[in-house]
Computed example of a mutant assay.
Amino acid sequence: MTSFATLPDLILEPLVRAALTEDLGQYGDITTRAVIPVRTRYAAKINARENGVVSGMQIAAIAFRLVDPLLTVNIRRTDGSVCRKGDTLMEIEGSAASILSAERVALNFAGRLSGISTLTRSFVNQTHGTNTRITCTRKTTPGLRVVEKQAVLHGGGYNHRSGLSDAILIKDNHIAAAGGIAAALNAARQVASHMVRVEIEVDTLDQLDEVLATAGADVVLLDNMDTASLRNAVERVDGKLVTEASGNMTLERIPEVAATGVDYISSGALTHSAHTLDLGLDF
């Protein structure tokens, strides 16, 4: 099992606090307050109801601790580990009311993020025998990008830029507005720091040839090309640029695309179309 560095709790706490505030509303958990005696204590477990790759345990633990710092939380399956149906991922002990009040937020995060890491692992497994890496995109849930991209890492994938300020990515509309590929690349290099990489999107091999003839790009995004064109593009680049294939990257297509020799395959589906892993909290 790979060991992953965790994000600082102070980055995650605002996300969890907002979710808890949304769920608890103005009056708190009125069902639990009405039904559960104040001093009732319980031991609960978060159990996997299907196979997958775990993510979101850190953020689920924060949810329980924010509701009640006196709860004892024991993570049994760390983020990035494989789980099987029936496995216990987390144990929580303490006030029954506190556990019940945090339950849904904890499960929402853990199920969503575990779904992303599970789908990512499926994509990564399809690249076996190649050097191609799977990477996510900016097609994330608004406000949750940091944790969804972390979930991609837990699944064995890699992160693309986190936002518009991380790197320069010149897409088709930028090229049109700038006056062409050469104009866009020249302008980008005039302002790019030595710490900022420049990537440019191309749709055709003719556009790729223009990029190769113009200095300025570090990475070329081969967008919506068929497999034969991708193979041709990799041959033309010949290691001079990092290559990224994107567009219509289904799970079934990944092996043939990886076999072309591209360095990266990016897919928005990792975050926008992942199935939520079925997890449950049991007393």
Rank of each mutant, 00 (worst) to 15 (best):
Q126D: 02
T271L: 06
T78F: 15
A176F: 03
I75C: 08
A18D: 15
V198S: 08
A97T: 01
E256C: 05
M90Y: 07
L144W: 09
D282S: 15
S266C: 06
R145N: 05
T276E: 05
I116T: 08
T276N: 10
T78M: 12
D226M: 12
L222D: 03
T118H: 06
R41Q: 15
L221K: 06
L281T: 06
R112E: 07
H128P: 00
G28A: 03
M249C: 14
K85D: 13
T21K: 14
L15E: 04
T118D: 04
R33E: 08
E252W: 01
R161W: 15
S165V: 14
A187D: 11
G247M: 02
M249W: 07
M90K: 12
V124D: 05
A188Q: 05
I116G: 12
V237Q: 12
L10T: 11
D9Q: 02
L7A: 03
D68V: 02
T140M: 06
A228M: 09
T40S: 11
S3Q: 15
G179L: 10
D206M: 13
V198F: 05
H272L: 12
A176R: 15
P255E: 04
G111D: 04
S266Q: 03
L270N: 02
G94Q: 05
L222N: 11
T6C: 08
A245T: 03
E210A: 14
T137C: 12
T250Y: 10
V191G: 12
E91D: 14
L230R: 02
K171I: 00
E50V: 10
T214L: 10
M90E: 09
E199F: 12
P37N: 05
K149D: 08
L153W: 01
R112A: 02
S229A: 15
V147H: 05
I265H: 00
S267L: 04
I92N: 04
I62E: 03
I168R: 11
T31V: 00
Y264Q: 05
R253S: 14
T21C: 09
K139W: 14
I92D: 07
A259N: 12
T40L: 11
R121Q: 08
D79C: 06
T204F: 09
D203C: 13
S81A: 14
I92S: 02
D166A: 13
T260M: 08
E50T: 05
S3K: 15
E50W: 15
A167Q: 12
T120W: 09
A228V: 13
G280T: 10
T140L: 04
Q58F: 05
N131A: 13
A259M: 04
D278C: 07
Q126H: 09
I99F: 10
E235Q: 14
T118M: 04
E256S: 11
G129Q: 10
V220Y: 15
L107H: 00
D23F: 01
V237L: 09
L113P: 07
E103K: 04
V82P: 03
A269Y: 11
K45M: 12
A34C: 07
I36R: 04
T132P: 11
L100N: 03
A19F: 01
L144F: 15
L12G: 00
R236G: 00
A259D: 14
F123H: 10
R189F: 07
L185A: 06
V211L: 09
S266F: 06
M249N: 07
F123S: 01
